[in-house]
Write a protein that binds this DNA or RNA. Structure first.
Lengths: 146, 146
DNA sequence: CGCAACTAGGTTGTACACAACTAATTTGAG
DNA sequence: CTCAAATTAGTTGTGTACAACCTAGTTGCG
């Protein structure tokens, strides 16, 4: 286990993640979305009317990242933010008409990304499983340090 | 190829990359390094006295990221920046005494990260190869769009 | 030689991440 | 019932990423 840059999985992950994000940048440009904003939209297309807290739990993002991001999505016109009447601490995020419509445009993205990754369905599934295992393992280890 | 968040490799990559970075944050704290700064140090421990341009090529980072990062490394006292006399456009980055010494402390990090990932040597090698293939494929695809 | 094209690094502006903190509200133990 | 603790968002400050632009320096064609 050396200090060689080209041997470390961490650098591989870092590079892969940036490469994929930069592909998404090109694909999402015309939809006026950044990649993290796209992730929020994915979550909302799956289930609309979510609390900020719920989105944070699903994406593993805290309010420091989500609050300004959601404001930008609101400014773009894709979501609406409403204080929850029965608990004034909470804010509910719901899709606007434009945000809902955007889903049709977004449908063409996953196949392009799959193609770009050069993996078939099985390869994608395996890669996803490997990454999830790695994430869980690393998170468990980190939490065990505290 | 759906829009389901939990099926997308991109989200797996994004999550894994952030999980690993956050483990590094804990491990690097006592060395006064951030994770991208650590990557630069890895590159310099392998070969010292490099031009900013060379570091950028190895890490795939442009001057917009590297310039301020290298200034911070200089402020911390790990590197020195010197204009190249024979080409005043270039800046050479060299390790200081403290930066060189830091390598011994850093040696303990890769085994910890390997352990945290829950992979044996073979698993790490395979994951790294898979990630490199994916990065190359995605980058090639993106460049083909231009 | 002279100057246009290129190159290396830096700066500016936008958008994440995330730690640390704050403000407003809700909850629950005593 | 009350108030301290917990909860939910939001804010602030630091450090990446990266596009777009800038500046100084170098090179090479005519």
């Amino acid at each position: 286990m050396s200090l060689r840059l080209d041997e470390q999985v961490c650098f591989g992950l870092y590079s892969a993640s940036r490469a994929v994000t930069s592909l998404y940048r090109v694909l999402l440009e015309q939809m006026d979305l950044t990649y993290p904003q796209y992730l929020v939209m994915l979550a909302l297309w799956e289930r609309d009317n979510r609390l900020v807290k719920e989105l944070g739990a699903e994406l593993n993002l805290d309010s420091g990242t989500l609050s300004p991001l959601l404001k930008r999505l609101e400014a773009t016109g894709y979501v609406q933010r409403t204080r929850q009447p029965d608990d004034e601490r909470s804010v509910r995020i719901s899709l606007t008409e434009a945000g809902t419509r955007l889903r049709d445009q977004a449908k063409r993205i996953p196949p392009v990304v799959g193609e770009a990754m050069g993996l078939d369905d099985e390869g994608l599934t395996r890669m996803r499983a490997d990454l999830d295992r790695l994430t869980d393992s690393v998170n468990a280890y980190r939490e065990s340090l505290a």
